[in-house]
């Protein structure tokens, strides 16, 4: 890995492993992420991308390995720990409570309260309206349970939740899977903007073309192992595809030949 980045990485995962019933879903993966950088995670279904990311977001606990966040070793035993480290996650399933409205979902687990300790629904709704006006100006269904929303609207609620709390590190697991062309473009713009604000972003997607556009670096996984971790400028789409399919890094082989 030739890399010109300097300073401490926002995230450093060292030798992360996790197994489920004998299957090594993630097998000794080390990966880092710098401020203002978008790192794309690629691989087939079951390659271990989501599992790796879920270890970072606290949904799973890694069997072994270390997390270093902004230069400090961190224990991530639950989603709460992860949130306290300013890591926000947009899950593939969106992780929304369908029976609650947008504001309740946005502030889930971090509800705003009045000075008497009661929920401040009016302020939460006002804040939701404020952030939605930036993210998705067409969003109007503030009073309805999110089950009544379209896929794109639900997605924007999940994105708003991750963005609202001033995350330093953002994990997006297939954020555009359920979206139309226009909405996908909006998400892409948002990723660029957040990157310019200095956030570090892990992005999972199956769309190689999209990844080439958005990411600074791509990391490819197969069978739980990290196959390649390359700057986007240094690889072609074909290189990436062959890493995904063959599980071999052509760049590395070239290096050997040279």
């Amino acid at each position: 890995m030739t890399d010109l980045r300097s300073g401490t990485p926002l995230v450093e995962m060292r030798n992360i492993s996790i197994a489920f019933g004998g299957i090594r879903a993630v097998d000794g993966v080390s990966l880092d992420l710098y401020a203002g950088e978008v790192v794309g995670l690629l691989g087939h279904n079951g390659a271990g991308k989501s599992t790796l990311i879920k270890c970072l977001s606290g949904a799973y606990q890694a069997d072994s390995g270390e997390f270093w966040i902004e230069g400090k070793k961190a224990q991530i035993a639950s989603p709460r720990d992860s949130r306290n480290l300013n890591i926000e996650t947009i899950y593939q399933t969106l992780a929304l409570a369908d029976n609650l409205d947008a504001a309740s979902n946005l502030f889930l687990g971090r509800e705003l309260t009045t000075r008497f300790g009661f929920l401040d629904d009016a302020r939460m709704e006002a804040e939701t309206r404020r952030i939605m006006a930036q993210l998705n100006p067409n969003f109007k269904k503030f009073k309805e349970p999110v089950s009544a929303l379209s896929g794109g609207q639900r997605q924007s609620v999940a994105i708003a939740r991750a963005v609202y709390f001033n995350a330093r590190i953002l994990i997006m697991d297939e954020p555009t899977a359920a979206l139309g062309v226009h909405e996908t473009e909006m998400v892409a713009d948002l990723i660029k903007e957040l990157k310019n604000q200095g956030l570090g972003i892990f992005l999972i997607s199956h769309d190689t073309r999209e990844m080439m556009d958005l990411c600074d670096r791509v990391a490819v996984m197969k069978n739980g192992q990290l196959i390649g971790n390359e700057r986007v400028e240094d690889v072609t789409e074909d290189d990436i595809l062959s890493m995904i399919i063959m599980g071999k890094n052509p760049k590395k082989q070239q290096n050997y030949q040279n």
Partner: peptide
């Protein structure tokens, strides 16, 4: 209706996994 406890109860009912991921 007015406390975090109650709101979290309904979140768990709506989607237990999401509630867990939201740090509840």
């Amino acid at each position: 209706k007015r406390t975090r406890f109650g709101r979290n109860v309904f979140a768990i009912g709506g989607n237990p996994e999401a509630a867990e991921l939201a740090g509840i």
